[in-house]
Design a protein around this nucleic acid. Structure first.
Lengths: 390, 390
DNA sequence: CGGAATTTGTTTAGCGGTTGAATTATTTGA
DNA sequence: TCAAATAATTCAACCGCTAAACAAATTCCG
């Protein structure tokens, strides 16, 4: 019945706390209270009061006065508190589990990756294993003086806002109540959010703070192909949170049959299994690539062309100017990117006057875990009010 | 340098004015001040103060007390003021110009359509003609006691936020400063916004208040094929406002060459020219359709299949659950929709547990003009603060 | 018919939060 | 050593919301 947002009374405070904290987070060097006053438009009086609250809540810390040029009282620099609340990120993927802890600034402090095919295991076993991994990392963090404030879990599937994994095709999971299961484990006292692996990897890419990314499609090439869409530095989730199923965008209406039942899905042209199909067994990765000339000379460029066709459609609809190749596509980018770029510049309408960029991801394997942990602390920075109960 | 939003001081007022006004707009029957207090969460005292301001500003009006069941002082109903600021919507399309005036409630009060191929004319001529049309409608509205508060112009092309028409392929326009040109004409004293035709038609569809549409893709089949995307009742514009180029999504990578230079664009399979190509000349529309069996039996279903393939990719990425067929696709929906639906249910991953809906648009031809006019008044309702300078 | 009940809407005191100016604090430069 | 400059705090004023009392208008019911 309600039209939308609730009222806003003295939640002006909450807004301004967030505003100040965000300014500190994005500042290139520790700003003073006076800097914050001018960058936010608030008065110095107000900023001082807000900063006091944030320092009291353990979110901000003062650093010694920086040497200044010219006269005047030296400014006390403000930084996000390195020992403020930390975020725990976990990732379940088809062939590994991963986790990491980041501090408020987004710096990774602890991490772990456990390789292993999860497909033979049932969901409860996998969720228990990843929770144990998380508990270990949490203990490590605690020993170093950091308190984990929340968990985010990345999974290769479609997730409801309530923490239900609706479907994870490549794990053959469906309707798994991951949030409920985790609530009963060793992390049960922490707030848990669950999200798609490509979405969280895209967030990690965004905050890896490369070349000022603003809007892009992050392509996650794992066993399946997913995509995370970032528009104006915000994750785009679609209407129900099930956006980004790039792997099932059609490349040829009469192509080979996909596991999803349709014909000619991108996954059949550029998925990991399609890439390696019928190849002699051997070590994976770049080594095999160099060993196999057919792969490098023909298969990968062809896969790149298919990827480019699918992405061109996406870009024509969504209007982003950058594509980031992640997951296994990252290290394969030298063989894939030229074909992707060629298709994009041919097929994207706006590329005529605003050329597309195709990049390899700057992140390593467990990108989604890092993105998940970062999402936890970024939520705190975005809504600090409840940490400031003075 | 600034992180994002400016500060929020006593603009709590502005927020709550908008909140109250929106509640009145969405209420099924004229609400009382007390109703608004309970639906917004504000106190009756605050609502009274806000309502007084809104009535004083000419945005709200009181209607006589409705008969009530039970005891108690009768309530004064509140409605959007039918003679408050009005919106003027204009539309330039390839084969017609159109305009309309709507009041604050979104009711169309005056309208006009002028058929005629605009392609032979240069941009200045067309813009002057549409401005004259707008001025006529404005005079009509003034005679009826309505003051037009702003103009929105719909064009079949890619528009920058500044009112520059970057490219309008089917008019062969590029880099036309429409906002600047209009500012010099008879509407020069009004604030002008310019937007893509499909975007504004999608907004019109959203507010035609059909079956509670929430998230959908509006497909605009005119000479070209565009799309307007609405997510959670908000227009989605992409990163730079150039989203929705559905006509150039690839259906077959090796298909026929499109005017844009690429191969196999949807427009080559389902565009108006492709549909009618090589047909004997004759009257357009349903009459011809019935006359031509090939069209109804083969061409249109085939076009629907192509449309479905392209839309399936879009839906997999954007996660909407409804497709609305508009423009010429509206009246053709009986022949197109079955094929579109078939492809969507085959190719959209989420359709397995959440079926897609394909509908014909409820709107007539100049949908974008109505959407444009509605956008003007909806902006006022969304930000009433400046109308309330008391 | 008349008072109690009921619901709407207004008035008033109080409070949280911001502003702006004055004040205090701390440094550099002459 | 003192003036200039910059940072940060204090304090009165103001704005908008809340809560509760109050006034207004109607129905219910004896």
């Amino acid at each position: 019945m309600n039209g939308g947002s609730p009222v806003r009374q003295a939640s002006v405070r909450a807004h301004n706390l967030a505003l100040v904290l965000r300014q500190v987070a994005v500042a290139p060097r520790p700003p003073s209270r006076a800097d914050l006053a001018s960058s936010t438009g608030l008065t110095r009086a107000t900023v001082s009061a807000l900063v006091d609250d944030l320092v009291g809540g353990g979110l901000l810390a003062e650093v010694g006065p920086a040497p200044r040029a010219g006269a005047g009282r030296p400014a006390a620099g403000l930084v996000l508190h390195a020992y403020g609340p930390a975020g725990l990120g976990l990732e379940i993927n088809v062939d590994y589990l991963a986790g990491c802890v980041v501090d408020l600034t987004g710096t990774v402090r602890h991490r772990a990756v456990v390789p292993g095919d999860q497909r033979p295991l049932d969901p409860e076993t996998v969720l228990a294993a990843v929770a144990d991994l998380g508990a270990r990392l949490r203990a490590e963090a605690a020993a170093a003086g950091r308190v984990v404030a929340g968990v985010a879990l990345a999974v290769p599937g479609l997730v409801s806002g309530t923490g239900l994994i609706h479907r994870a095709p490549n794990l053959a999971w469906h309707d798994v109540d991951a949030a409920g299961t985790l609530a009963g484990g060793p992390l049960g006292d922490l707030p848990v959010t669950i999200d798609n692996e490509a979405n969280l990897a895209a967030l990690a890419e965004l905050h890896a703070d490369g070349q000022g990314l603003d809007s892009f499609v992050y392509v996650s090439g794992e066993i399946g192909i997913g995509a995370g869409i970032v528009l104006r530095r915000e994750l785009f989730r679609g209407a129900r949170g099930w956006s980004g199923e790039l792997g099932h965008v059609c490349v040829r209406p009469d192509g080979p049959r996909c596991r999803c039942g349709a014909l000619g899905c991108l996954e059949q042209y550029a998925g990991q299994e399609a890439l390696l199909r019928d190849l002699p067994a051997g070590e994976a990765g770049l080594a095999r690539l160099r060993a196999d000339e057919d792969l490098a000379q023909h298969r990968l460029p062809a896969a790149g062309t298919s990827l480019g066709v699918a992405l061109a459609g996406v870009v024509n609809m969504l209007d982003v100017d950058t594509v980031v190749l992640g997951g296994i596509f990252g290290p394969l980018a030298p063989w894939l990117a030229p074909a992707v770029e060629a298709e994009l510049s041919r097929r994207v309408l706006t590329s005529a006057w605003s050329p597309m960029t195709v990049r390899a991801s700057a992140l390593g394997p467990a990108a989604a875990a890092v993105g998940a942990a970062g999402a936890v602390v970024r939520d705190i920075v975005a809504e600090p009010a409840e940490w400031v109960r003075s």
